[in-house]
């Protein structure tokens, strides 16, 4: 490319080429791939640099917004984290000092140990109507879960989850089915994903994690999961009750 070529491209960009000149320019682009590629890059660079200039103010404003939101969001979650960790330290200290006592009382009072069955009461599964070809599968999953056929339910829910990987309710009920049939590890994978993925559902996931540990007889893990349930959660009351029983 020489000087004249670039001047022509600039004229083309400024829409100054007309009639025969424009036709010649376009014909050359069609016939000469090297020329066409140069024109394309020239225009792309121009549009990129132009956009950068034009959005300068908007980008600065957005940067500020993101900065504020980010700072606010992370400070909040960190503060929550700190409160919990402080609380849990107290809990652990209390738990440790109680441990000797408990182990003594425990032997005398075996029957008061809370069981999974006492707490495992689920809302019936109802999934919003999904796409037409999944309707049958959805109904089978609901029927199986609500009638306590958890192996079947887990298979159907697994299938549904494959095509709706972000559907929290499917994931949750799949986990519950897996706990019921003793597939704890697989259940925990789903529950932990929910716990980390979305703050609103995290307490619910923790509650069912706790129940899974309870069923497995892992009291320590159960208590730890229960303590992750914040007061604003609908499971808080039950969680506290279970905590009390567990540390009795």
């Amino acid at each position: 490319m020489d000087e004249r070529d670039y001047q022509q491209i600039e004229s083309y960009l400024q829409k100054e080429l007309e009639g025969e000149e424009l036709a010649r320019f376009e014909a050359r682009m069609a016939a000469d791939p090297e020329f066409a590629a140069t024109v394309e890059t020239y225009l792309a660079i121009n549009s990129h640099l132009q956009a950068r200039v034009d959005r300068k103010e908007g980008e600065e404003n957005l940067k500020r917004t993101i900065g504020h939101v980010s700072a606010g969001h992370f400070n909040e979650t960190n503060q929550k984290g700190k409160v919990i960790s402080l609380k849990s330290r107290v809990y652990w200290a209390a738990a440790a000092s109680l441990l000797l006592l408990i182990s003594f009382v425990y032997i005398l009072n075996l029957q008061s140990t809370p069981t999974y069955e006492e707490y495992a009461h689920y809302e019936p599964l109802t999934l919003s109507s999904r796409s037409e070809n999944e309707q049958l599968l959805t109904q089978s999953a609901e029927a199986a879960f609500n009638s306590g056929q958890y192996t079947k339910a887990s298979q159907h829910l697994e299938e549904l989850l494959a095509s709706n990987p972000d559907h929290i309710n499917i994931k949750l009920y799949l986990a519950l089915s897996l706990i019921e049939i003793g597939e704890y590890t697989r259940a925990e994978v789903h529950l932990k994903a929910i716990e980390q993925g979305n703050s609103i559902y995290a307490p619910t996931a923790n509650w069912y994690l706790a129940l899974s540990y309870l069923k497995q007889g892992d009291k320590r893990a159960c208590i730890a999961a229960l303590k992750n349930i914040p007061p604003e959660s609908s499971k808080y009351k039950e969680a506290q009750e279970l905590l009390k029983k567990l540390s009795r």
Binding site: Y6, I9, E10, I45, N46
Partner: peptide
């Protein structure tokens, strides 16, 4: 100015390509 701009853009185009 017009000529200068097109040459500067041309140089940039060459470097990018």
């Amino acid at each position: 100015l017009r000529k200068k701009k097109s040459l500067c853009m041309g140089r940039l185009t060459e470097l990018v390509r």
